[in-house]
Design a protein around this nucleic acid. Structure first.
Length: 222
DNA sequence: ACATTAAGTGATT
DNA sequence: AATCACTTAATGT
């Protein structure tokens, strides 16, 4: 209902990024920040593109993935939600370089783009900005390490369940809109394997399967 | 009604 | 667990 236009930046900052406390910082964000809106499923940044903005997510959700050259094989690094920012983008603004990752929207998403030169400038000028950058870097790093040992040590079965719970959380809805193929791509598995595991979960009374959607019941817990 | 796309199955490696 | 080769079911035109 709220269209996050330029003039609403101060209000949105207050709500979603309360840790950015300095009034002067907020004023600068409102001044140089640019609001962008993306539709669901849009690729915001792709491998090899130059990063010129660091996004503050204010609405929707975004998926950050990494693939190894050969197309069609990618793995999820983490999801971004309102109140968060893309940590991978920080690297790139200290040292200008091409993106190592792909970010695409899962839902209709709105962001405030902060020009990279401002991002590094503010680190020196505003304590709360520095803390914000550092702590989001830290929390994504933790997620990343978890994702890594999930791949290394957990069964596909367990990974799928965690994935479903994560999707449920970002969708804020027990019913997620997806296909088995999409999940298979996200988890680096074959579609058939995912279908079979989902079938098992359905038989176990943990999910309800329909075409293009999966309902995740409360009985599914990790 | 027909075509297209998603999902289910069994066999093979 | 991947791949193949189908089959079956759901949806769009």
């Amino acid at each position: 209902m709220s269209y996050s236009v330029q003039s609403e930046i101060p209000k949105v900052l207050q709500q979603l990024f309360p840790q950015l406390s300095e009034p002067a910082l907020k004023a600068e964000i409102a001044q140089v920040g640019q609001v962008f809106m993306y539709q669901a499923g849009q690729v915001v940044m792709d491998y090899g593109s130059y990063i010129k903005m660091v996004p503050l997510i204010i609405k929707g959700s975004v998926r950050v993935t990494r693939a190894d050259q050969r197309e069609g094989r990618e793995i999820i690094l983490y999801f971004l939600q309102p109140g968060e920012t893309c940590s991978m983008a920080f690297n790139a603004c200290m040292i200008p370089k091409k993106s190592e990752i792909r970010t695409e929207t899962i839902e209709d998403t709105t962001i405030i783009g902060i020009p990279v030169d401002k991002v590094s400038e503010w680190v020196n000028r505003y304590q709360s900005w520095k803390n914000f950058i550092m702590s989001s870097y830290d929390s994504k790093m933790v997620e990343l390490v978890r994702a890594l040992d999930s791949v290394a040590f957990e069964s596909m079965d367990h990974r799928l369940q965690k994935y479903l719970l994560a999707r449920k959380k970002t969708a804020k809805n027990a019913v997620i809109q997806t296909t088995h193929q999409e999940i298979a791509n996200d988890l680096n598995a074959s579609r058939e394997a995912i279908s079979r595991l989902l079938k098992k979960l359905e038989l176990a009374g943990k999910v309800v399967l329909k075409r293009h959607q999966i309902e995740i019941l409360d009985t599914l817990v990790t």
